[in-house]
Amino acid sequence: MTTDILVHRHGVPTLICAVDGPELRDERDAVDVIGTAFQHEAELVVIPVERLAEDFFTLSTGVAGGIAQKFVNYHLRLAIVGDISAFTTVSTALRDFVYETNRGRQLWFCPTEDDLDERLAAGARRN
């Protein structure tokens, strides 16, 4: 299993979670990742789409909201990186959720790491 690593992206200490790490199924799994982020003194956590349980993408399960809220409670930003188009094409609610969260600074859905870097660079320019 690959390990999670800390990198600095555009001045932001960022924990990059390994693709082959344990699946995030609920808030308890999120707390484990948050603990790792605190150990590394990260401000942003990047989780590959492959690490998320399928229930995350069905908003009625509450999994996405619960996980996102844990990160908010612990003052950590979260970026989900990867292609979620298979989920957003069949769920207007998810598509709207992604749109709204991407307008803020707390939770982003980015198709690629390059997209994430562009967002971080734009934020660094504003500061």
Rank of each mutant, 00 (worst) to 15 (best):
97 F>I: 03
91 S>W: 07
85 S>R: 12
10 H>Y: 10
16 I>S: 05
88 T>E: 02
56 F>D: 08
22 P>E: 12
53 A>Q: 12
47 I>H: 08
121 A>M: 13
23 E>L: 14
63 V>Y: 09
110 C>A: 11
59 L>R: 08
31 V>H: 06
40 H>T: 03
65 G>C: 06
122 A>Y: 10
60 S>V: 15
76 L>Y: 03
12 V>E: 03
41 E>A: 13
120 L>R: 07
104 G>K: 05
37 A>L: 06
19 V>L: 11
118 E>R: 13
1 M>T: 12
65 G>E: 06
102 N>D: 10
16 I>L: 15
96 D>Q: 13
122 A>R: 15
24 L>I: 15
25 R>L: 05
14 T>P: 02
110 C>W: 02
103 R>T: 00
2 T>N: 14
2 T>Y: 12
118 E>M: 13
14 T>N: 10
3 T>C: 08
92 T>Y: 08
55 D>R: 14
80 I>Q: 04
72 V>H: 06
76 L>R: 03
103 R>V: 00
94 L>E: 05
88 T>P: 00
48 P>I: 11
64 A>H: 08
36 T>S: 11
16 I>N: 12
117 D>I: 02
8 H>S: 15
90 V>G: 04
113 E>W: 01
80 I>L: 14
67 I>S: 04
78 L>R: 01
25 R>G: 12
119 R>N: 07
80 I>K: 01
85 S>G: 00
36 T>V: 09
27 E>W: 04
72 V>R: 09
102 N>I: 10
81 V>R: 01
1 M>W: 10
96 D>W: 02
51 R>F: 09
36 T>H: 11
29 D>Y: 07
33 V>Q: 08
61 T>N: 13
109 F>Q: 01
116 L>P: 01
87 F>R: 05
65 G>T: 06
107 L>T: 01
114 D>C: 01
85 S>I: 00
58 T>L: 14
113 E>I: 04
62 G>K: 12
61 T>I: 12
36 T>N: 09
26 D>Y: 09
84 I>G: 01
47 I>L: 15
10 H>C: 07
63 V>H: 07
13 P>C: 05
63 V>A: 15
77 R>L: 00
116 L>I: 03
125 R>F: 09
9 R>Q: 11
105 R>L: 02
72 V>L: 08
33 V>S: 02
61 T>Y: 13
19 V>F: 06
93 A>D: 06
25 R>M: 05
67 I>K: 07
39 Q>H: 09
77 R>I: 00
